[in-house]
Nucleic acid binder design. Structure first.
Lengths: 208, 208, 208, 208
DNA sequence: GATGAATGAGAGTTCATTCAT
DNA sequence: CATGAATGAACTCTCATTCAT
């Protein structure tokens, strides 16, 4: 019945918010275990120890639940990353803070990231199109690209296409997110240092 | 009834091979349009203009079809990449050839790559584990890591962890593969040059 | 979701128990009409005026439904036979009571017996083995054999192999159960008297 | 294409007859292993090392194959039993010969009997009726009942309903046939002696 | 005579969703 | 608020049968 923007303008009660979080948490665990395709509402409800109907009550449907899951995690990630980036001084340090805080977030939320990835890659609208399409990535990409452009204007960075570079950074981060799931013994700390160096070199000025 | 290597040692007839390729091609198109989860045998058959039973006749089941699809594409990719790498002189050129030929293959087989990615990320065994797990990536990763190590021994490359670097390269390639699907107007040529430069810089010796 | 003994220890609700009985009753009628092989869940559901999914909801699967059907009838039969046997005085009368009450039960539950027989003879496990194998017959046979042995020890019966005799009695009963289905005009009352006499003679002492 | 009575009056060629027997033999083995319901033409063909089409060529369809299987075995059984019965002197000896030769045939053809039983119990016409119904049993029962009646007229047997007695004997024989399949260690020799004694006693004159 | 290929119906099962209580 | 019950569609897979070669 209820949905994201709560059209009536009414706030969600505390108890309702708790239920929603509980259901999303259960969905995260189920998805990270059996994958998106096998994560049925029945399984999610069973895992949460509630009845199937509860999910239907708190979310408009399966797609809504999945969408909320993604949004919740994106917001959480932004809450971790943004302050780190802002706190850093200079474009180079900001970009490095962006990379490092993103990977730190992944490290601290492995299951969530696994579930998020599954949903983003699989959730589709009725017409078959991916629900989280490239247009959504822009929102994530843009601030990073802006950061890179800034560094170039300020003369801290060398010559490169800031959009391409932004995509490379995102692919490195998302790739690490996938590895964390696939490779149980993946050394994310070491990989973070490696990745920071990679893009540190890539953004330097040519000569000097 | 039939399976991958035809254990009886019998060869597959020409007509059967053609049918299998037709079915796999149909699966590729359907998957790249509606995604793995919505790519039912019924849809694949309908798209191919054949009856559902034909698929069951030529493949042991849906999982077999998907597995064959992946294998076929991996083999095709290797057939394109390997000669290019071998033809290149010196470790640096080899690595660059690896990156460039991989991305060129992706460019020339967008839909296939899209389908492959979907299958690899979603196909699971009866126990819920991903069928193409990280162990399978090793096979792909190892030759690349060997190339990087070689370059270090020969003094052409600087100091870096060759496994991390290999994973970075793979993530850049796989990330591009995903972009090609998501972003219809993705400039893969430009991205190739950018990526080549990225790893060219990353593998250089420190000073000089 | 649910199963025979409800392992969680939870009781089944009244309404659920009623549905289960309704479904089993429908299965009995369908099986006794078209046979086990043609008794699909679709037909059973249609006969009961419900949707196919309901069966899956109340039973783990077709095999579970069939198993429950058999168990329910075995229990019902035991509830009829046991008191009659216990009430009889002397081994001979007990054996005759066993035969007569078994056949009376068959007479009163012709369709159920028909269905039961079909299921027991056809239901197989995944490995192809009959689900109700000879080991299960032992449970049914043993009390009867014990009765026969008792009569021999007490001197009421003559010399014979009690296991063979038990099997003969069971075959006579089961044979009658099959006849009741095949021969619509089978005179079970008359056959009961005949069978009682048959085994009365067979268990007598040699001389007199 | 061809069928039982070969309407054109043409004889079947030797090679064709051999193929039919080979197919029936394969059907017998498959049925006795996996049961009637799981005995698909594909499995029967595979077991025989031939293609599915061959079966369709030599039999009108699956039902025809099954019918031929039953007929072939009934004929074989009659060929064993009839001479033994005829050779015996006196009604009592004839009935005992009937029982003993039937059980001996079962002993010597366990798998065939298993398959036969499966088919007779499961094969149904399009209208759902058993193909080998009670009317067919009459053909088998009648000669036996005639034997029993004869013995009564000649004064060798006592008072009993010869039809009931015939059915009891058939049930004992068919029951043994089923046991031979279910109980791998069933002592059919011992059971034969037991059964012969059972009906020897049952047919005796009252006093004396 | 025999084969491989194809069909189309029907099987059991799972699932998201709806609804009365 | 929450539940259990029910629906109906879609899924994969198996099968007997047909047919061109």
């Amino acid at each position: 019945m209820r949905s994201e923007s709560e059209p009536g303008g009414q706030q969600r009660s505390f108890i309702e918010e708790a239920r929603r979080r509980q259901i999303i948490a259960s969905a995260v665990e189920v998805i990270s275990e059996v994958g998106y395709a096998n994560a049925s509402l029945a399984r999610i409800a069973e895992h949460a120890g509630i009845s199937k109907g509860v999910i239907s009550y708190h979310f408009q449907g399966k797609d809504d639940l999945m969408t909320q899951l993604v949004i919740q995690l994106y917001v959480s990630a932004a809450e971790v990353v943004a302050p780190e980036v802002i706190a850093a001084v200079g474009a180079r340090n900001r970009v490095l803070a962006y990379i490092e805080s993103n990977l730190a977030f992944i490290d601290a939320n492995r299951r969530y990231v696994a579930a998020l990835t599954e949903v983003v890659r699989n959730l589709r609208d009725a017409d078959g199109q991916l629900h989280f399409a490239s247009s959504d990535e822009s929102e994530i990409l843009e601030p990073l690209v802006a950061l890179l452009r800034e560094g170039q204007l300020e003369g801290e960075f060398g010559e490169f296409d800031p959009v391409f570079m932004g995509k490379s950074i995102r692919d490195a981060i998302d790739g690490a997110g996938a590895r964390v799931v696939r490779e149980t013994d993946f050394d994310l700390r070491g990989y973070t240092a490696h990745t920071a160096r990679l893009f540190d070199l890539a953004t330097r000025k040519a000569e000097e």
